[in-house]
């Protein structure tokens, strides 16, 4: 994902409306600050609660600052740091490979569908679209992947099923269809083949929408725990979200059935600490890339 030049038109719009701060602008800022806070506060709460003392939480409730500051929740979860680190590794691998391969295959599928002169365009579009709505259900999917594809307890099972997502294909197709045909025609007259056109013209011109869909992929793979629930049994192959999900569910089972006296499990703060561990890196990546991402939507949005 590289920088994309902002269209001149957008810059023009900015230039044209430059003017001094006014009362009405101040009001607008106030409203936006309010909305921004509504988005920010829950995030701050998660962090604050994750550093709070369990007993203090029960008595005082959630606060925007840690009540009785402690890192107990984190030490509890990180009792087994290799496990969490391993899970980060699995998730990173799955996310990176899934996003790159998925984006590539989707783009490859979307491009022909965007071409008016592709004879199978209608049929294949429908073929893609049909999968948006009709699903066979969990059991047959499970049987297919474990018994026919033999992917049980295999990291590929965490990647392959999401590689082609009909929704993304349709968005990409719409976006590709908006590319100026003159460019494509010119390249064709110069004797460029379809593959060459795709790699040299279509992909470079579509960076914004690719960045957007790429982020969708990242979030999807990063946040997924469902595939692991279905297919992964070996703890060393657990992706992060699934590991956290399992820890969280185990916590409440164990708490309800104490045969031995241990330290009380810090359930509430641990829950939030897990959320921090899960979204922390994703948020970091987002903040690093958000310039491109917001612009990707901004430009992609124009084209549906």
């Amino acid at each position: 994902m590289t920088t994309v030049a902002q269209p001149a038109r957008v810059q023009g719009a900015v230039q044209a409306r430059r003017k001094p701060i006014s009362w009405s602008n101040l009001a607008v800022h106030l409203v936006l600050i309010g909305i921004g806070l509504a988005c920010l506060i829950p995030m701050l709460l998660v962090v604050a609660v994750s550093f709070s003392d369990e007993q203090a939480l029960v008595v005082e409730g959630y606060r925007l600052y840690p009540v009785g500051f402690t890192t107990h929740a984190y030490t509890y979860i990180l009792k087994n740091p290799q496990q969490i680190l391993g899970a980060y590794g699995v998730t990173a691998l799955v996310t990176a490979v899934g996003t790159l391969v998925g984006l590539f295959i989707c783009a490859l599928l979307a491009y022909p569908l965007s071409r008016q002169d592709f004879k199978l365009r209608g049929v294949l579009s429908f073929y893609v679209f049909f999968t948006l709505l009709f699903h066979g259900g969990m059991v047959p999917f499970y049987i297919l992947v474990t018994q026919y594809l033999g992917l049980k307890d295999n990291i590929l099972a965490l990647i392959a099923p999401y590689l082609v997502t009909a929704w993304y294909v349709l968005i990409l197709r719409t976006s590709f269809a908006q590319l100026p045909t003159e460019l494509l025609d010119a390249a064709r007259i110069d004797g460029a083949g379809e593959w060459r056109i795709f790699f040299r013209i279509v992909l470079p011109l579509s960076k914004p929408v690719l960045a957007t869909i790429g982020l969708f992929y990242v979030l999807r793979y990063w946040n997924d725990w469902f595939l692991a629930l279905l297919f992964i049994d070996t703890p060393s192959l657990y992706p992060l979200q699934y590991l956290l999900q399992v820890l969280m569910r185990n916590m409440s089972v164990l708490a309800s059935n104490p045969q031995t006296m241990g330290e009380p499990i810090p359930t509430q703060s641990a829950r939030m600490a897990m959320a921090v561990l899960a979204f922390g890196p994703a948020l970091f990546v987002f903040l690093m890339l958000q310039k491109y991402f917001v612009r990707g939507i901004t430009i992609g949005g124009l084209k549906g």
């Binding site: 295959i105 491009y111 999968t131 059991v139 047959p140 999917f141 082609v164 294909v169």
Partner: peptide, 19 residues
């Protein structure tokens, strides 16, 4: 070009439709 996508959809979306 479309083939890889078509195949993947066939495997992961159409085959389970037996369900």
């Amino acid at each position: 070009m479309a083939l890889p996508g078509i195949v993947l959809l066939f495997i992961f979306a159409y085959l389970p439709m037996v369900g």
